[in-house]
Design a protein around this nucleic acid. Structure first.
Lengths: 156, 156
DNA sequence: TCCCTATAAGTTGATATCAACGTAATGCGG
DNA sequence: CCGCATTACGTTGATATCAACTTATAGGGA
């Protein structure tokens, strides 16, 4: 039988000031809002921009590989595709090589939206990079955090 | 009348490899899943941990100030409080000084959950920091990104 | 006192996020 | 060919996220 005493206020300050999960969530929310706002004229959100961009490739990928690329749950991606399919920016077809798989592809309309959005991204992204002391290092650290989530990478 | 040509595949690779919004979202998702998993025995998510911790202070804060601290929309915080209030981990009361404001406070049960969760956080957070080359610098850059969203901080 | 603006928060509707569970196809060993 | 574990994906339910709109109080100026 254990009892727990309440964390001290000092502990709270420590967590608040150091927690990488909190810091990353905060930055993610702030950045998302900023890109959402900038992309509003094009009618897509920051997440939709990332998704559309990840589909702009010579060979249409399947759903699972895109989810892995975005470090996103597979079922989240399914949900995110729905509004884009409704708007005919993305279309799916069965993989002729594997009936289980869905191949994802941009429509011409989707490519057009992406083409409109890209210069907006360039401009805002350049602005944000200027605010940072070392964007490359930041990207590198963030990539390490993403990779550390590879499900099953740690035996257990 | 303008026409837009489709972004090249090289552009896609550039965006994919450099976009800080995407990198931050990915890391945020991966970290959240990792903390969610670790905190599962306590019955809270990473976001709920951050929220409960931010309420562990001598004087109960109002809703707006907590939303600002978490860089979160005010209405998002309202929604996030609902499950915690249902479980009696958090309670609210009207501010006697200002009838518009709601003061947020941990219940004893909320403090107990936080006390159970804190050692889990300490352990996992230490593990994550070991994976990084410069956690302090990362926090610093992430803070800059959060601050850059201060609504209205930039004139124009 | 009476407006009038600013502030604090709630509500609604759309999308995002994931775990848990279920379905169907693949592909291997026999 | 058959059985079975694996793989790819969908559905459901709960929570998270925010914009747009609405309600109500606070506080200053006429």
């Amino acid at each position: 039988m254990r009892t727990f005493s309440s964390p001290t206020f000092e502990t709270t300050i420590l967590v608040r000031d150091t927690c990488l999960c909190l810091h990353t969530q905060r930055a993610a929310r702030a950045l998302a809002r900023r890109f959402d706002d900038a992309l509003k004229p094009v009618g897509i959100t920051s997440g939709q921009f990332s998704l559309l961009m990840s589909l702009n490739r010579p060979q249409p990928p399947n759903l699972g590989s895109v989810a892995a690329l975005l470090a996103m749950d597979r079922t989240t991606l399914t949900a995110n595709l729905k509004p884009l399919e409704r708007r005919r920016l993305v279309e799916t077809k069965a993989d002729p090589k594997d009936a289980r798989a869905r191949l994802l592809r941009l429509t011409p309309a989707g490519r057009a939206v992406l083409a409109e959005a890209t210069p907006i991204w360039r401009h805002l992204h350049a602005e944000i990079e200027k605010e940072l002391s070392d964007p490359d290092r930041l990207r590198s650290e963030l990539s390490m955090l993403s990779r550390s989530d590879q499900r099953g990478s740690v035996a257990g």
